[in-house]
Write a protein that binds this DNA or RNA. Sequence first.
DNA 1: CCTAGTCATTGATTATTATCAATCATCGGA
DNA 2: TCCGATGATTGATAATAATCAATGACTAGG
Lengths: 234, 234
Amino acid sequence: MNRSSVVEAWTGNSKCQHCNIRKLVLFADLNQQDFDLIHQPIDDLDFDCGEKIYQTTDSPLFVYTIRSGLVKLVHELANGSYRIVRILRQGDVAGMEALNGTAYLQNAVALQPTSICRIPVAEIERLNRESPRLSKQLTSRWQKAVSDADTWLAELTTGVSKRRVASLLLYLENNKDTENCYIPSREDIGAVLSITTETASRIIAEFGRSGWINVDGNSARVDKAALEKIVLSD
Amino acid sequence: MNRSSVVEAWTGNSKCQHCNIRKLVLFADLNQQDFDLIHQPIDDLDFDCGEKIYQTTDSPLFVYTIRSGLVKLVHELANGSYRIVRILRQGDVAGMEALNGTAYLQNAVALQPTSICRIPVAEIERLNRESPRLSKQLTSRWQKAVSDADTWLAELTTGVSKRRVASLLLYLENNKDTENCYIPSREDIGAVLSITTETASRIIAEFGRSGWINVDGNSARVDKAALEKIVLSD
DNA sequence: CCTAGTCATTGATTATTATCAATCATCGGA
DNA sequence: TCCGATGATTGATAATAATCAATGACTAGG
């Protein structure tokens, strides 16, 4: 198991209220009384690059909130290949399908050192039953998941591959929480856009030569205007 | 406006409980008391082929349940092109983003003569507040929307176009509610799979010549085994 | 410091798909 | 009935991306 250390295990009435990103996450609207309803521990976990946060074979007992870092949702196909259906960041919720009692639909894998909160489904159900303040955030998270999925489908799988790569880079640029923009491995770019590793590499290299991006390891500075022109024209 | 006739306008405590597909829809778990909470009319509307059920510029005041027929969700892109992000059928819910107070993300267009229930968001919010029995169905509908979106992304945009067309046909075959399988126009197939109308046409014609499908107008009989072989092998 | 392993890049060739263009089939209305 | 419009099909060619193969860059571990 790749599960990293539990940084802090606690039971709601202590640390959640002082969480420095609480306004961004599922518990944004909760008050003291609501936190007092929480019985099971909500664990704060750290993952390194490449570690699995959950996989499709896990019992769907938890929902995960990303505190920092980046996470890819990897959907495995019957023929053995795989696709990345989304990249999640700070404030995003993963594994919401557990709320419906169904198995996780994808594997969730950290792309960077990532910190997450692991919330038991039972606690969410209790809160949702006994307090009205969670349901608005739940609706909003569901909606974000659907909307992100639809946008990925519509934007990232349309047009020639140069346009698609530009579109993905803009997505990453607009959703970064650090100074530089994270650039996935060429294989992962391929798995997002349904192109081969080689094609992804050629296009990233060409963008670099054109000065539209400035790659350094797995991050880059990005010329948004130039990429936007490609996305619109092509 | 293309809005068709209101077949029946009613206020919850009359017809919904006797709806012959109620077990399939959002109100599956509601009881008499719950229906008594409904104040605004829930309209039963009919649409012909090509008619718009809602569009992105409409005020997001309603959620729609499909009673029969087929509906495409059409996502318009900045460069003027469009993509079909999903095809919905009996029991599916469209426009759930209205529950979050955000604009509709796509246009919804009938592909066949289609019958839908138009439910005011205010009524869903009231029920969700005053009765616990709706929330399970809502969670389940949200989850289906996300899961469908992810599956479309992963399955229908992977591999060569022959594989993608086969995959779409299998999806339509497995989700049909009539004897024959609905075959979209070649342009719509293209908008689902991100291929050109011509490529879609060539592949459908070839499948027909190979005897894997038997097209008659906009429906077909489908050789599932043959198409599954293509999806897996290619 | 050297080396094996991993990932990125690039080249050459083939396969796939888009584009442009023409023809065919069908259907509703003059 | 004939006509014009629309959608489906097919062909020829160009553009794009996949495949197969080799090389380069970097890193962790002996």
